[in-house]
């Protein structure tokens, strides 16, 4: 499992201006490690993450996942099976219960409902979501719990690449540490490739590799 970025550039273009959000980024991400990308706001972190997730295609350069070029791959299928993204908030469908949210990625892969919910239950337990929370709606949960449900959903879908865009951004330090610990465990025990975008140095400390992003350049 590896992700290779080769001279990735990305340019936002609209009527008023052109922004080179990512400038010639080349790097490699591999399984079993947790990466932290740090940088000031506006430095292009989210853009880079969207490119890795296959949500945007680079203006130039090539990105491959396990040797398959992103530009030709079925990017939806990739996100269904291999890549998960966790955002700062709005990770869950507001009107679906915790267990339904977790089972969702399996259901869109046409996996049968009981099987999907069993997997979901198991993964929720592994991130410390108790049984009584399973049928609650996201808004009844704390921010940390919601992020854990989102992580459980990534696990349920079987993704080996977990991208997190400021996952601790709206959490207090204790809950934030809890989330980072879970992600770290996934990288080390489950052999996932975890990439965290953050500007919290205490989060970066936990990572195996720390990268700095500045004005679209990655160091």
């Amino acid at each position: 499992m590896e992700i290779l970025l080769n001279n990735i550039c990305f340019e936002y273009r609209n009527k008023y201006r052109r922004v080179e959000a990512v400038k010639s980024v080349s790097c490699r991400f591999e399984a079993g490690k947790m990466y932290a990308i740090m940088g000031a706001s506006g430095s292009g972190k989210t853009t880079l993450l969207s490119i890795i997730a296959g949500l945007r295609l680079p203006s130039s350069g090539e990105i491959t996942v396990d040797g398959i070029p992103m530009s030709t791959a079925d990017r939806c299928k990739l996100r269904r099976e291999k890549i998960s993204v966790i955002y700062q908030d709005f990770n869950l469908f507001p009107l679906l219960t915790v267990i339904e949210n977790t089972a969702y990625p399996l259901l869109i892969r046409k996996i049968n409902k009981t099987e999907a919910e069993n997997t979901a239950k198991e993964k929720l337990a592994s991130v410390g979501i108790t049984d009584d929370m399973l049928v609650q709606l996201p808004r009844m949960l704390s921010g940390g719990e919601q992020q854990r449900v989102a992580i459980a959903r990534s696990l349920a879908s079987g993704s080996k690449i977990i991208l997190a865009d400021e996952p601790t951004g709206s959490l207090d330090s204790e809950n934030g540490k809890n989330i980072v610990d879970i992600l770290k465990r996934l990288a080390h025990k489950e052999d996932c490739c975890v990439i965290i975008v953050t500007h919290d140095p205490s989060v970066a400390e936990e990572a195996d590799v720390v990268m700095k992003m500045r004005d679209g350049n990655l160091k």
Partner: peptide
């Protein structure tokens, strides 16, 4: 945002 979430999840 819900559509974006669906998109991220691979719909």
């Amino acid at each position: 945002r819900e559509l974006a979430l669906q998109n991220v999840l691979g719909c």
